[in-house]
Simulated scan of single mutants.
Amino acid sequence: MEPIGLMHIETVLIPREFIDSVYKEFQDTGQEGFERLALFAGKKSGPEFSVTHLLYPKQQLLRTPEGLSFQVDGEELERINEWLFQNSYSLIAQIHSHPSEAYHSEADDALAIITTFGGLSIVVPDYGFSDKNLAHSAFYRLLPDTGWTELSPNQVTSLIKITD
């Protein structure tokens, strides 16, 4: 039986340079008082996924009375999907910053760009200022029965490998 989406992925390899870039971007944007989103794309080989591309979609950064958010419009999502298809890449994760604690909000659940089962959503706290190498970030995996489900620290350690 063919595995569902990305559910069979047991290891995600992320280059350290991508993590460093994300933190710098989140901190720069955070100094302006905004959240920011990035995407990890690459290729799967059996149970392993290698992140080969870090994408910063064009996004509108928003500050409203309800809080902070970002918005990626349909045209940009279509552009990214075309690029992924043309190059035989897949998205494995979205990663975004929060101004304080790391958690998956209702908006994060409802407006996720990752929609493939087994995909990941990573939330970095404090715009990345109080965190390093995803140590205090929250990790969620999209599961068929439970939707966005927080991963335990042991699950994260087993799944995510930052490579040099």
Rank of each mutant, 00 (worst) to 15 (best):
I19R: 05
Y103K: 07
I160A: 06
S158V: 04
E82K: 14
G119R: 09
L55V: 15
E2Q: 15
I14T: 06
T52H: 04
E10Q: 15
E75I: 10
G67A: 03
E82Y: 10
K161M: 00
E101P: 00
H136C: 00
P65H: 09
K24Q: 13
S121C: 11
A38S: 14
Q59M: 09
H53G: 01
R63M: 05
V22G: 00
G46A: 02
E35Y: 02
L68M: 09
R79L: 06
N87L: 02
L68C: 02
S50H: 04
S88W: 06
L6T: 15
Y89R: 04
L111Q: 14
T157N: 10
L68Y: 11
Q155G: 08
L111Y: 14
L91A: 05
R63T: 06
E2F: 08
N133F: 03
A138S: 14
N81Q: 12
L61M: 12
Q155W: 05
A93M: 03
Y56N: 07
T146C: 11
V12F: 00
T29W: 05
L143M: 14
G147C: 10
Y23P: 00
E101S: 11
L120K: 10
S137Q: 09
L91F: 09
E48A: 07
I14L: 08
T29C: 03
L37F: 02
G30Y: 08
D164K: 07
N154C: 02
G30E: 08
E10P: 00
G30A: 08
Y140I: 02
S45A: 08
N87Q: 07
T116G: 06
H96F: 01
W83P: 01
L13C: 04
P3E: 15
I113S: 02
S158I: 05
T52R: 04
L142W: 14
Y23V: 06
A107D: 08
L37Y: 06
G118H: 13
E32M: 06
E32D: 09
D126C: 03
P47E: 05
R63N: 10
E32K: 12
K43N: 08
G30K: 01
K58N: 11
F117R: 14
E75Y: 14
A107H: 06
E2T: 13
A135V: 00
I4F: 11
D73L: 03
L37E: 10
Q27V: 14
S21N: 11
S21R: 11
L6P: 14
A112I: 12
E32N: 02
G118V: 09
D73W: 07
